[in-house]
């Protein structure tokens, strides 16, 4: 009976209670009790943890922001560099495409000698349709030389200095080009205008001209070589009591976006002005 003294009984009771609690816990009977007591604890823990992390982030943020800003600046500068490279590559690609196209034109018209020139400006007055190119008398350019692109006729050299030339476009209001309508084989005069539109004049009344007819240079007058593509007939106008038909022409060359041109250097323009009776 000495074994059942007070101290041992207390130990046995504690062990029995712990064992009972363990048994109840393992068997799942204490889950509702755990939930009831632990849920608020977990909630409080999460609340505290979130606040702590926020506070820590706030306190350590300046260093990270500085680093991020530095990294951002580096990345931004890299992006800018890459964008610059991309633009340069696109420009070179565009130039290469223009050069290939001009080369194609040169190959299909091997009878002419060409000088390639870049358009560097336009006439200061809006009433005139002229462009300025970066080749001049140093490159063999002379007054009157025809200017073309891979698409067709552009105009002719109007003034030359050592390193640049001024080219009068066929859309200028004072420009007159003798042309040939390919389908109908009719000769006519192509006139420019103030607005840059092209029109055909001097078409005989008894000739049939259809929209879509191809307009080529005829070579008459000696200003331009023959058979250079100019454009297509858009519409035909026939007025009562008029001596000739007129027609609107859609130019093949987009004169607003010419970047490079070919100057035909072995064509000598013939000045027939003295032969024209006054």
């Amino acid at each position: 009976m000495k074994f059942l003294n007070g101290k041992n009984v207390q130990t046995i009771v504690i062990v029995a209670v712990v064992a009972g609690l363990l048994f109840l816990a393992l068997s799942g009977y204490l889950t509702p009790v755990f939930n009831l007591t632990l849920n608020p604890l977990v909630s409080f823990e999460s609340w505290l943890s979130v606040r702590y992390l926020s506070a820590r982030d706030f306190l350590t943020a300046p260093r990270d922001v500085t680093q991020l800003r530095e990294q951002n600046a580096i990345l931004e500068s890299q992006v800018t560099q890459l964008q610059t490279q991309l633009i340069q590559m696109e420009e070179r690609l565009g130039e290469a495409q223009i050069c290939f196209a001009l080369l194609d034109f040169g190959r299909t018209n091997p009878q002419y000698e060409y000088v390639t020139a870049t358009v560097i400006g336009r006439e200061i007055s809006p009433f005139l349709q002229y462009i300025i190119i970066d080749k001049g008398s140093d490159d063999g350019l002379q007054y009157g030389m025809p200017v073309v692109t891979q698409e067709g006729l552009v105009g002719r050299v109007d003034a030359v200095i050592a390193a640049a030339s001024r080219v009068k476009l066929i859309t200028d209001s004072t420009s007159v080009v003798n042309v040939l309508l390919q389908t109908a084989e009719i000769e006519a005069q192509l006139n420019g205008s103030l607005t840059g539109d092209l029109s055909l004049d001097m078409i005989p009344l008894d000739e049939t001209v259809e929209p879509g007819d191809v307009v080529l240079t005829s070579g008459l007058g000696g200003n331009y070589p023959p058979n250079i593509f100019v454009g297509q007939v858009l519409s035909v106008q026939m007025r009562d009591n008029a001596l000739f038909q007129t027609a609107s022409v859609q130019p093949i060359v987009d004169f607003n976006s010419i970047n490079a041109v070919l100057v035909i250097t072995n064509f000598e323009a013939v000045d027939i002005t003295p032969l024209i009776p006054e």
Binding site: S125, P126, F127, L128, S173, T174, N191, L194, T195
Partner: peptide
């Protein structure tokens, strides 16, 4: 002045068109 000069030089520029377009 530009329109007058061009007309004198022989360019077929109409005043109405010059006013509207330019």
């Amino acid at each position: 002045l530009y329109v007058v000069a061009l007309q004198v030089a022989g360019a077929p520029i109409a005043w109405g068109q010059a006013l509207d377009a330019v």
